[in-house]
């Protein structure tokens, strides 16, 4: 018994180390957001909020941030909305050309984004259509679809077909079966897929560079163009704000719900 516990603590330590490694650059970004020097490294030469103040007044970055959020959210919704049915088709049905189609739908990650970016523009030019937000959105959906598919399929494999068959034999319609049986079991993967789709879209540079019009530039595209002169620490400040939000919202929500639950218990 003792051996198992020590094995488990090794796993814990290992995981902790991976976390530290993964977050090292993030911590650096957040810390440097408070550095008054633009090119400061360590040791820091002071502490200031000036980049946060500048960020609050920078309408270009804030607009880009808004565009990124809208684009990412819509991408997540559309991508899972079309990805989940496709995963169902692959896992739950047998049909001709399944392997081929499965490969095809995962193909967007095989095509280097530079190529995909330019290729899509060539096609649009050939159709003689101007670029638009809709194009950018569908482009992102196609880019993120493989992730949704891979995650949802991997999960679907583990959900027993028997549950669904039982529901069907009890007279439920296929859609009811999906809603009542499959979807609840699938929900974690759907959520993970959405999260993935959102983050991939949110962080995408290369393809967005080519597809975005002047009206809907995103944060990564702005950063890419900042590379020429210098990346302002305002970007670090933006990162810091986002991280604080992402960490605090789930914690806060958890705290509220626990408090609420306690209240009910009494």
């Amino acid at each position: 018994m003792k051996k198992i516990i020590s094995g488990w603590s090794l796993i814990k330590i290992y995981t902790l180390l991976v976390y530290i490694w993964m977050f090292a650059p993030i911590v650096v970004v957040v810390v440097l957001a408070f550095n008054p020097q633009q090119f400061g490294t360590f040791p820091m030469e002071g502490f200031s909020f000036k980049w946060f103040v500048k960020l609050a007044h920078n309408s270009t970055i804030l607009d880009a941030f808004k565009n990124s959020m809208v684009l990412g959210s819509l991408t997540a919704i559309f991508s899972t909305a079309i990805g989940v049915p496709a995963a169902m088709a692959f896992i739950r049905y047998d049909f001709k050309g399944k392997d081929f189609l499965n490969t095809l739908l995962i193909a967007p990650i095989m095509v280097p984004e530079v190529v995909l970016g330019v290729a899509l523009l060539l096609f649009i030019r050939w159709l003689q259509q101007p670029k638009s937000f809709a194009l950018l959105l569908i482009g992102h959906v196609v880019l993120t679809l493989p992730y949704v598919l891979l995650i949802v399929q991997a999960r679907l494999v583990g959900i027993k077909k028997e549950y669904e068959e039982a529901a069907l034999s009890l007279g439920a319609s296929p859609f009811q079966t999906f809603r009542e049986i499959t979807f609840p079991l699938l929900a974690p993967a759907v959520f993970a897929g959405m999260l993935f789709a959102f983050t991939i879209s949110f962080d995408d540079v290369t393809a967005t560079l080519f597809w975005a019009t002047a009206h809907n530039q995103t944060v990564p595209v702005q950063i890419f163009s900042m590379l020429r002169n210098s990346i302002s620490p305002e970007i670090n400040a933006l990162g810091a704000v986002m991280i604080v939000l992402t960490i605090s919202i789930p914690l806060f929500a958890g705290y509220i719900s626990r408090k609420f639950a306690k209240g009910v218990d009494k």
Binding site: T60, V118, L121, L122, I124, R125, K131, L209, F210, Q217, V221, Q222, F224, S225, M226, L227, R228
Partner: peptide
Amino acid sequence: AFAGMDAFLTQVKAS
């Protein structure tokens, strides 16, 4: 904002 001279020319060429 554009990302660089070359990338911009690529965009213009494909627009």
